[in-house]
């Protein structure tokens, strides 16, 4: 995987991708892609070790968000 993304297997559940945003405020994002297709999106700030936000996305929703984030979404 690309630089700054750590991959961690979660046995029986899926795979976790820890994305280091290299931001000065120390935010981190972890994404768990579970085997049933669900995506769990964890957002951490520099303060505290509990996630600041957690989103559970279906495959469909994840695609939508992902397309917008990746800049491949075109409205007609």
């Amino acid at each position: 995987m690309g630089k700054g993304v750590r991959i961690q297997e979660l046995p029986g559940l899926g795979t976790r991708y820890d994305v280091d945003l290299h931001s000065s405020s120390g935010e981190r994002v972890s994404i768990v892609v579970s085997r049933d297709g669900k995506r769990h999106l964890y957002v951490f700030t520099a303060v505290g070790d509990d996630p600041a936000a957690v989103l559970e996305l279906t495959e469909e929703q994840a695609r939508k968000v992902g397309a917008v984030l990746a800049g491949t979404f075109f409205s007609d």
Partner: peptide, 11 residues
């Protein structure tokens, strides 16, 4: 899910 001990627990 993002905790350090979680992969161990699942394992």
């Amino acid at each position: 899910l993002a905790n350090a001990e979680t992969p161990v627990i699942l394992g």
